[in-house]
């Protein structure tokens, strides 16, 4: 660098470099793995000994008609999942109208718990309730008098997507509602007082004060969700997938795992995740710019 550094600046640099190195190794180094896509790579071979094939693997990966099913599943599940946001907002608004302080606190506490539980535990619970011998499955069959049925929520192809969406909403809605709850607390209470003086009722106050007050939070969360529309996450699908419903719930994150780790097709799996990463980054920066121009606020 040539410039002589003071002792203090050098100390600061020494303190920073290890952390930055860790970031480089674990977040940036894997990106070089994308080169595998451009070679005819087989496990056990050295990359240098493999033939350079250009975009062949990429084209091959996306010429498989099944990938369209996977992408469609991903988009449908993500879009349906967006309904969790207004739901969280409604829960927050209604809960803030409840009078019992203790009751409010207990409800808030309990509905947030599922967000902090791993998908394995959630699957374990769902399995105990909804599998063929599951408690709720049996109760439901007794109620409908349909004891010979073998369909369960875990294996029903038709409702599989919806079940994934509902489970995810169940897991996250409580936590999201806390975000809205915090936003409601931030609304100027004078607005409500003034509205009361003018004779506004509960619903009028909610409609004219609370909802407009929550809109920025809602839009921020919506934008973040849109940016992550291709990220359904791998964990939920890993635990819930089974041959009966795979076709309808296989999403990109799971597909990349199945192709890469279970079928050892490294090049195709890498190609798909590379394209996914590109689209995700473009989406994130795109929606951020959109939010800047439309709302005047950056979310990043």
């Amino acid at each position: 660098m040539g410039v002589k550094m003071s002792r203090g600046r050098r100390t600061l640099l020494f303190m920073t470099v290890p952390s930055i190195l860790l970031v480089l190794v674990f977040s940036y180094l894997p990106i070089f793995g994308w080169v595998y896509t451009f070679f005819d790579y087989r496990i056990g071979y050295r990359l240098l000994n493999c033939e350079f094939v250009g975009l062949d693997n990429l084209i091959y990966a996306f010429s498989d008609p099944y990938i369209m099913t996977v992408i469609l599943n991903t988009l449908i599940i993500s879009v349906l999942g967006l309904s969790g946001l207004p739901l969280a907002g409604i829960i927050a608004i209604l809960l803030s109208e409840v009078r019992g302080k203790k009751f409010k606190k207990v409800v808030q506490t309990v509905i947030t718990v599922p967000n902090f539980i791993s998908w394995i535990i959630i699957y374990s619970i769902m399995f105990s309730l909804f599998s063929n011998d599951g408690m709720l499955t049996v109760v439901f069959r007794q109620m409908t008098g349909n004891m010979d049925s073998t369909t369960t929520l875990l294996t029903n192809l038709g409702t599989a997507k919806l079940f994934m969406v509902m489970t995810n909403i169940w897991k996250t809605v409580g936590y999201n509602s806390i975000i809205f709850f915090a936003a409601i607390t931030g609304i100027d209470s004078q607005l409500y007082d003034a509205a009361s003086v003018d004779g506004a009722g509960r619903w009028q106050k909610i409609w004219h004060i609370t909802i407009p007050g929550l809109l920025p939070t809602f839009i921020t969360l919506l934008i973040i969700s849109v940016g992550g529309i291709l990220n359904n996450g791998f964990e939920q699908y890993y635990v819930f997938v089974n041959p009966m419903i795979q076709r309808n719930i296989e999403v990109v994150d799971y597909y990349v795992y199945r192709i890469g780790m279970l079928q050892n097709d490294i090049t195709v799996s890498t190609a798909v995740s590379m394209v996914k990463s590109f689209i995700s980054v473009v989406l994130v920066f795109g929606v951020n710019r959109l939010s800047k121009t439309l709302l005047g606020q950056s979310i990043m």
Binding site: I20, V23, L24, S27, Y28, L29, P30, I31, F32, G33, W34, Y36, F234, D253, V256, Y257, G260, M261, I266, S269, T270, V272, S273, M274, K276, S277, S280, V281, V284, F285, M300
Partner: peptide
């Protein structure tokens, strides 16, 4: 920037595994 951008990039499962 290095730290912040790391939140938005994701090499993907297989490149990560191989690394």
């Amino acid at each position: 920037s290095i730290a912040i951008v790391s939140m938005y990039i994701n090499a993907g499962l297989i490149p990560w595994y191989l690394t």
